[in-house]
Design a protein around this nucleic acid. Structure first.
Lengths: 348, 348
DNA sequence: CTGAAAGCGCTTACAG
DNA sequence: CTGAAAGCGCTTACAG
């Protein structure tokens, strides 16, 4: 393997000290235009690229940000979600000439948590934490440690945290409003997300609040875990139940809605004719099913981008930023709620 | 922000030199058991974590691997693909206590390519490059530079490259074989992927080879770009065409198959009754459509994992590894080809 | 104005 | 056997 080119090599080629070469490359005014040009040319010719380790050690800055993926969430939240967040992060990180590190907890067993190591080792200047469980003490510890971190989601119990998220309560209410007001559905079911995550709790709260506001009396809540299988299982349970069949199901995410949709279809239930179905997320699945699933579009990429910008504010000690950034969501209307097929509409 | 704890702090607390503390923590035998224990305790108490920059600079090793995502591919290949690869990489990297860096080209305009910078700056010890275009000179340069790199895909023109991939030709042949032999389809269409990528060329080659082998005479090839929209457009074109309608369409990926499926449905064409549809990838979409899409399952996660293991072989100078690793794929039979619904079967 | 030392944090090769 | 210097590559504060 080719020995890597250092500043010393560049300096030697031009006949200056490496200190001078460093200043020349950074455009320091004390270096003459002539020398500056010579050094830059030599650097180009030799293919010099600064060592990130050398620079990081000297400047006490890694020029990298980390995306922390708690092990629990890998299964719970989908691939598509993380990729959207990662895309947004990359956009912001590129603009700051910073690298993006993806840090997954190796395993739960070792109490040794990815968060802390990444941060304390200064591999990254700061971290984005997403989809952490409500009772995740490590997140709390991270926030308390004062290391730069931005949380994606809603963490009302962490007063000091800088967070970027959406209003899950209000968004879920909008789904219920749509089913009740536009489609006259009144026997609604909610299949929840994981209830150790704030999104799960908030979406349930939104469902119940809207149901009460509309005076719905025939309302059921079934606990799910965000997986397609749990959506199918919950739906199976509904089909078995005695009493009047519900005329609408509000799934806490699209994956479960897909499972529910397929289960209903297999049982010969017409969607949306007999039962309307709505989901949450719109990361990709909801558009491709038949019927397409009416859902809330979560701006995951934008969340990743904005969270990363907030993170750089923290790293660079730019104060005056709001602790909480709440992004608007869109109601995406497709056919599964009873709206016309082929007429996808978006409402902000 | 809390000042970070260095080895010197740990050493001072115990009353030894930082050199001794370093050896104690690495379990060097020249340090007495007593001192070793004392240092470890002190490190724990202070929350010491080694500085990655210090260690990297000294050991000339970043303990990190990079996933290179050429800007062109971000659109072309799906989010799901990259996430699968990333998941596999993380598994392998975690086992080696290495970080994973995701490097996206900021933009094409600057000829300055992500590959080189990441590698030459020693931010990462090696790189995984995936889904590069056939004529991407930078990949060629990277391989030629001798820096550790593993390519995912098939690069027959790069003799020196270490690659991990599947046999796209053979896999596509299996799809055609299935349509012809099991379902008696003979008027087949192929909608290609991007033809500046090897996968696109190979899948087309497989389609044509199988068609010829079966003596099919009514065969059409339409160029696509892997997007759902291009699948829809190609299908639209088929519907407009005069002459006998095809009875089977082999899409080069699932995204296009989804687009095709919806277009056929909207035109009132029965799938699979009138036209059988098959895709390629099985990263998530093919399972949720109605009918489910028969496809080839590409083991993207395993590709990411194995590529990363090969990469560590390279970084650690472990020779004797094959230059090419070819993974088997599965034919996943769903309803879109005419097989029974609800009877998903996998054939290796 | 400019030359070159100091030091970021680490680990190993060397001197004693 | 053990103490402590040297040096990885970089940049800035300091000495001249």
């Amino acid at each position: 393997m080719a020995k890597s080119v250092t500043l010393k090599d560049v300096a030697a080629k031009v006949g200056v000290t490496s200190a001078a070469a460093s200043m020349a490359l950074s455009g320091h005014e004390r270096i003459s235009e002539r020398t500056r040009a010579a050094v830059k040319r030599a650097a180009d010719e030799l293919g010099y690229v600064p060592s990130s380790a050398g620079r990081a050690l000297r400047s006490q800055r890694a020029d990298a940000v980390a995306l922390i993926v708690p092990n629990s969430s890998a299964h719970v939240f989908g691939h598509l979600y993380f990729m959207h967040v990662l895309t947004g992060m990359s956009t912001a990180a590129n603009a700051h000439d910073a690298q993006v590190i993806v840090s997954t907890n190796a395993d739960t067993s070792s109490g040794d948590v990815a968060y802390e190591r990444v941060m304390r080792s200064r591999t990254a200047d700061g971290a984005i934490v997403t989809s952490a469980a409500v009772d995740d003490d490590h997140v709390q510890a991270l926030v308390a440690s004062g290391l730069p971190a931005v949380l994606i989601g809603n963490y009302p119990h962490l007063a000091d945290a800088v967070t970027v998220g959406i209003d899950d309560v209000r968004a879920t209410e909008r789904l219920v409003d749509h089913l009740v007001e536009v489609h006259g559905r009144r026997r609604l079911v909610h299949v929840t997300g994981t209830l150790d995550h704030r999104t799960g709790l908030d979406r349930r709260r939104g469902f119940l609040a809207a149901a009460e506001r509309h005076g719905l009396t025939d309302v059921t809540v079934i606990e799910g875990d965000l997986s397609e299988a749990s959506g199918a299982a919950a739906t199976e349970q509904l089909l078995q139940a005695s009493g009047a069949r519900p005329d609408g199901v509000v799934f806490a995410n699209d994956d479960m809605a897909v499972g529910g949709l397929h289960t209903l279809r297999r049982a010969g239930v017409d969607v949306p004719g007999d039962v309307a179905v709505v989901g949450f997320d719109d990361f990709g699945l909801a558009r491709v099913t038949t019927p397409g699933i009416t859902t809330i579009r979560v701006p995951a990429e934008e969340m990743g981008r904005i969270a990363t910008e907030r993170l750089f504010d923290l790293v660079d000690h730019r104060g005056g930023q709001p602790a909480r950034t709440e992004l608007p969501v869109e109601l995406v209307v497709r056919a599964s709620c009873g709206c016309e097929p082929d007429a996808e509409r978006v409402r902000t």
